[in-house]
Design a protein around this nucleic acid. Structure first.
Lengths: 169, 169
DNA sequence: AGGTATTGTTTAAAACTTGAACCACTGTGC
DNA sequence: GCACAGTGGTTCAAGTTTTAAACAATACCT
């Protein structure tokens, strides 16, 4: 079967996408590192916890929500625990389980750094997008997510673990 | 000054963006790791070289194009050289300089793995987007890139180096 | 009970990033 | 010509992160 290469328009869009996302991720990481002392992944773990009922989540659920391996999450939470932003608690209903709990210090850190983070996101995106574009963005990203998740459970059947990590850059 | 939080629509779009981009980057990395034996960054270095005149680029230019530090690029190219996909050559016009050159083996690897890569990108994006959405995506990503690049040279004046890495996840 | 699947951690190795120091060379001003 | 600031690129050591493969403890099923 012969390859269906990208059209010119698709290539332009793809390149634009790759550089924009990588630039933006760098920008966010830099800012978060400076102000919260942690990269985006760790910050987003805290943010996720802050929205969970009782500010706590099972390790496995958290890993799944963040789409990372449990091993990786264990490492991350260990570090966050050292920072004092997260605490582990045993799970009452399942003695194998552990909950990651956002501490008050963690919540305080979020409250202190969220404005800067939002400012970054605004400056990079929303201050320059029309309301229509915001909707378009959501729609497109939703499509991407659905495409990947359907594709994954379908074709290869594989789930976790995964490696995170013209020829379309 | 009080924080301008994200509107509901902006939050939805932002979350959608974050999970889509991270999922997609994972998917691409996994596939490229499996088929080309390298993560996306390295692959994209090869791809970039393949399009340059004479399949070669000055180290600094390459670093700038990829938006990474020279140090990081040195590391990457060293690895690619071990793989045999890139070779270093001295620069004829500036004896300080070095060119990274895509080898025949590197080109062959690209040709062998590009179809799979394109397939990944198609399956995740373009097979599910209308032509209008493709244009919207390009436009939005262009806006992001411009916003970040203008913002960087303006406010803080800083350039390189940078650190690569409710509270908006 | 006995076997199997989950949960989460540990471990050791490998991959990567960073920042600073550094050498070789270039270009500029005097 | 010659100091001298600047550029191009690498090296180095330290630190961070990721991975895969065990592993122990517990739960679930029959």
């Amino acid at each position: 079967m012969t390859t269906r290469w990208l059209s010119a328009a698709e290539q332009r869009a793809w390149r634009s996408y790759v550089s924009a996302t990588s630039l933006l991720e760098d920008t966010i990481d830099r800012r978060l590192q400076a102000e919260a002392g942690m990269p985006h992944l760790y910050y987003s773990i805290l943010a996720r916890l802050s929205e969970a009922p009782d500010r706590r989540l099972r390790m496995t659920d958290l890993a799944e929500a963040q789409k990372i391996t449990r091993s990786r999450l264990t490492y991350a939470v260990t570090r966050l625990e050292k920072d004092g932003t997260v605490r582990r608690e045993g799970c009452p209903t399942d003695r194998r389980g552990h909950m990651a709990v956002l501490t008050d210090a963690g919540m305080a850190l979020l409250e202190r750094t969220a404005p800067g983070h939002v400012e970054t996101v605004r400056a990079a995106l929303f201050d320059h997008l029309s309301p229509e574009q915001v909707e378009q963005l959501e729609e497109i990203c939703g499509t991407i997510t659905r495409a990947i998740q359907d594709g994954n459970s379908g074709a290869s059947g594989e789930d976790l673990p995964w490696r995170r990590r013209s020829c379309s850059s």
